[in-house]
Design a protein around this nucleic acid. Structure first.
Lengths: 196, 196
DNA sequence: CTAGGGTGTTACCGGTCTGTAACGTCATGA
DNA sequence: TCATGACGTTACAGACCGGTAACACCCTAG
């Protein structure tokens, strides 16, 4: 049978899933290849048959995580079809949920901080994915009828980025606790000054 | 002569200074003890005579960095004595300078992201120092006559934190480029809604 | 049945890491 | 002069790291 849908999850997928989870929880430099393969129920050789190196694995993990995050946006469209303003508010709620539930920040931002070498191959991937993320939020703001869509999107981006970092340094009771109020206030404010 | 002011910089201070710089540039896990001692022109034994462990060194570095940052606040008071609103604007300018000049974010935030173990001894120090930083900004906002001082201070904190992270993932041309406009806009907005 | 590809196992390489032991050097101060 | 203490040097321990080689296994497609 040539249907590719195998029941048992292939080692490559188990590795990718496990690595995402462990990188997220313990950081990239805080997790070794051996720990990943063991947690994934496989071994080092199999990992290196599917990924060129740890750096390659890191990049694939970042792409996979971004892909999952992308699915969120489709959920917004499904939940509020055509209503871009409602989708923007849904984005705020989703962001707030990330803050309280997660404890660890954005994988891409964390990776950018950990991988200090500016020539690291993951850096351009991080930049690429973050820019795509930004474009998406800008478009949503614009479609929601916000005048200065770029400025609102950038402000919300920085607020969320900062909140996700703040959670890790001072916890959920710190400044990030006010994230929703800040974001909603900004949206109201920008809608007030709306333009064509 | 029993005056403690020795001309030659003591090894402990050289180590502390060098470690701060290298931790900042390359991250905590990206720098080894050997590299620090070599750059400081000393050796490993001397380091371990002054610091209990690498974790201890990390903590001392964070405290020293926070101390330097504290000196900035005194500069604001000197430059604009009594004028708290001017000091708040000076804080915004200082923050913006950090963004364009540095390339690497806040040492405390970076450390919080790198040291994923919640029991790590540096974590409570980070939280302590970050909370002190927040209190300072809240006080400044309140003294500047802002009504919702806590909310403005928290918003500015998150914006800056996010901007310092964003610089590392997408560079200075990303959302962080609008930091000053965002911050100044917020201050104006909060002064508009000022209360007693 | 058979060949081959995906997988598992073990062992290993060279390097790096934190931290310590033992000893030698040197300046200072009594 | 001599003792003390700070500092430097070398070597090492023990662990972990990323990555590779060689070989055995087993399921499946043909």
């Amino acid at each position: 049978m040539e249907d590719g849908t195998v029941e048992r999850v292939r080692p490559r997928d188990r590795i990718l899933e496990t690595a995402q989870d462990m990188f997220h929880k313990h950081g990239i430099k805080g997790v070794g290849i051996d720990a990943i393969t063991e947690a994934a129920g496989t071994n080092k050789m199999t990992l290196y048959r599917h990924f060129d190196s740890k750096d390659d694995l890191i990049i694939q993990c970042l792409r996979a995580t971004a892909c999952k995050a992308g699915a969120m946006w489709e959920k917004f469209e499904v939940q509020h079809p055509g209503n871009k303003l409602a989708q923007l508010h849904a984005w705020v709620r989703m962001a707030a949920d990330c803050l309280t539930a997660d404890g660890r920040g954005c994988d891409m931002a964390n990776a950018a901080i950990e991988l200090t070498d500016t020539d690291h191959p993951a850096r351009r991937v991080i930049k690429e994915l973050k820019e795509a993320q930004r474009d998406r939020l800008v478009t949503l703001c614009r479609d929601a009828g916000i005048g200065q869509a770029e400025l609102l999107a950038d402000t919300l981006s920085l607020l969320l980025e900062g909140a996700r970092v703040s959670v890790q340094s001072v916890g959920t009771e710190g400044p990030s606790a006010q994230f929703v109020r800040m974001a909603e206030g900004l949206i109201v404010s920008f809608r007030g000054t709306a333009a064509g």
